[in-house]
Every structure is written in structure tokens, then in C-alpha cells.
């Protein structure tokens, strides 16, 4: 961990590295999409700041997770335009399909489901985002179809290999 972090911090300017960008990069390097406690310690050491400061910054931002997440992230927008356009039904359908609630991870560690703030895609509410891709104008059925096919794609990608930290 220290080595991975040191490399990221080194590329970004060592003690002058922008902490938030370091945290995002460290998270991106983690297959479980999170910043572990070990990583927090490593960042503190590499950047010579207190752990408390690193943790504090990491804990503030919703796009940074301090707990392991699934390899893939499904985010469902919960703001008014999407809510109006049927967010709840989409959420229900996806929860049912995945067998988890918002904030949880599927048993195979493949997918996390999160409720988030506006994705800036309200012209096609209800909108969801899967990893880097936004899907809009969804009906619950369409949402489920998308999730189903992506899930298949994801499992093939990881080919049954156990999901590590």
C-alpha cells in the first residue's frame, strides 16, 4: 500500500500534492473503490500531514468511500427532477434486481448501489449512473434490463475471480 500511495503522491508533487486528487487516485487504484485505513496512513506518511487531516478530508466528500464498495458503482439520483420523474420506482426495481438496498454491496462484491445528488442530467430524468456512464429517461423495466446486461458483462470481466481488497 505504501508503495502504491507513494507513487501516486510522488507523481502529484509529494508534500505539495493536492490531497483531494491523491485520495481520488488512491481510491481509483483500489478494486474495491475505497480508501482503506492503511491507505489513509500511507497518504499521511507520504505527504507528512496528520492522519486526522487526511481522514477528515476523505470523510467529507460523498464520492470518496472509507469502506469497501463493489467493483462497480450504480448511482441513482435522488433530487427533485428525478424524484418527480419516478426515481422511487427505478430504485425499487434495481434494489429488487440486485437484492440489496441503497448503501449496500451485492454478495459477490461486484456492485454497490448508492443514492446521490443531481447528476446534471435532469433533462433526461430519471437518471442513473453506472461507473462513468449516465443512463436517462428510464422506466423501471429499462433500468432492470440495463443492470442485468451490465451485471453479466461485469461477471464475465472478472470471470468468477474472487473480489479482492
Amino acid at each position: 500500500m505504501q508503495a502504491v500511495v507513494q507513487e501516486i503522491v510522488g507523481q502529484m508533487g509529494n508534500e505539495k500534492a493536492p490531497l483531494l486528487q491523491v485520495l481520488l487516485a488512491v481510491q481509483d487504484a483500489s478494486p474495491r473503490n475505497y480508501v482503506s485505513e492503511e491507505a489513509v496512513r500511507a497518504i499521511a506518511r507520504s505527504m507528512r500531514v496528520s492522519r486526522c487531516r487526511v481522514y477528515s478530508t476523505a470523510s467529507f466528500y460523498t464520492e470518496i468511500s472509507l469502506k469497501p464498495r463493489g467493483r462497480h458503482l450504480i448511482r441513482i439520483c435522488g433530487n427533485a427532477p428525478c424524484e418527480n420523474a419516478g426515481r422511487a420506482a427505478i430504485m425499487d426495481a434495481i434494489q429488487k434486481e440486485l437484492g440489496i438496498k441503497a448503501g449496500e454491496i451485492t454478495a459477490d462484491g461486484l456492485i454497490s448501489l448508492e443514492k446521490v445528488s443531481c447528476l446534471g442530467a435532469c433533462y433526461k430524468s430519471p437518471a442513473i449512473k453506472v461507473d462513468h456512464q449516465i443512463y436517462g429517461n428510464l422506466t423501471p423495466e429499462e433500468a432492470v434490463a440495463i443492470i442485468r446486461s451490465l451485471r453479466e458483462e461485469f461477471s464475465n470481466e472478472h470471470n468468477g475471480s474472487p473480489v479482492g481488497i
Binding site: 485505513e37 496528520s50 492522519r51 486526522c52 487526511v54 481522514y55 477528515s56 470523510s59
Partner: peptide, 19 residues
């Protein structure tokens, strides 16, 4: 010493050591 600091946000904020 850098032990107590405010963490999280909104209703979850706490002035505590890390974690």
C-alpha cells in the same frame, strides 16, 4: 499534535480522532 479534528459533514460531523 493533530488528534481532534472535525470529520464528516452535515449531521454526521463529529470532532474526534480519525475514524
Amino acid at each position: 499534535v493533530g488528534i481532534l479534528y472535525s470529520h464528516n459533514r452535515g449531521l454526521d460531523i463529529g470532532v474526534t480522532p480519525e475514524y
